[in-house]
């Protein structure tokens, strides 16, 4: 564990807490893409299958449970909660995310570290996480103005993988057998997808204005 990875995990956790706060405090999920949340639930379920087989550390196991539980709770809330689900922008959240799932699964079958069930699903989860934010970014562009909590949620979500890139650079220089090129390439793509969001987020922060994404 190094400071970059720890900061990355904490940033990721903060993004989830901000989303939970938004849904719980405002009893609304307007501006949030259910499809992105479903993709994240799939990412965590596919990646953390080793929860019961590979014990790494208490921290690792606890965080896996937190990520799986929170992502499922958010999907449940947006689908079933009688008050929250009424504020879901169903007509705006129209990204065909099943194509993302199919493409990532096909890629994972072609490119993975070892052609085993767990490794294919692990690579699938890495590829899927890289593109999972797309429905959310499309929804933000369509819904025009973005409320503060949603903007902060997406910002922290993008920042966490940037810390992981620093972690991979650090591990590359400090560990002999470190080769996580699947994670690195996907992580770079994932962070790059946030580039324009980060730009508009910075502009809104500098001008102290409302976050606006161009349609």
């Amino acid at each position: 564990m190094n400071i970059f990875r720890f900061l990355g995990d904490m940033t990721h956790l903060i993004s989830i807490l901000i989303l939970l706060l938004k849904i719980y405090a405002t009893k609304s999920c307007s501006g949030i893409s259910l499809k992105t949340q479903e993709l994240y639930a799939l990412v965590f379920l596919a990646r953390y299958l080793d929860l019961f087989t590979d014990f790494i550390s208490v921290y690792n196991s606890v965080m896996k449970v937190v990520f799986i539980a929170s992502s499922l709770a958010i999907v449940w809330c947006m689908r079933r909660h009688r008050v929250v689900r009424r504020s879901y922008d169903k007509e705006l959240d129209t990204f065909r995310h099943y194509f993302l799932v199919a493409a990532c699964l096909a890629l994972a079958l072609l490119v993975q570290e070892k052609f085993t069930f767990l490794e294919v699903l692990w690579a699938f989860s890495i590829y899927l996480e890289a593109v999972a934010i797309l429905p959310q970014l499309v929804l933000l562009q369509r819904s025009g103005n973005v409320d503060n909590l949603t903007g902060q949620y997406v910002f922290f979500l993008g920042a966490y993988r940037a810390f992981y890139i620093l972690n991979w650079i650090y591990r590359y220089f400090t560990e002999t057998h470190f080769s996580r090129w699947i994670s690195c390439v996907s992580g770079l793509v994932q962070t790059a997808l946030y580039a324009d969001f980060f730009y508009y987020y910075f502009i809104s922060w500098k001008n102290n204005s409302k976050l606006q994404l161009p349609a």
Partner: peptide, 10 residues
């Protein structure tokens, strides 16, 4: 440091 078995990152 040997590369840990499996994936040790979240």
């Amino acid at each position: 440091k040997e590369k840990p078995q499996g994936h040790d990152e979240l």
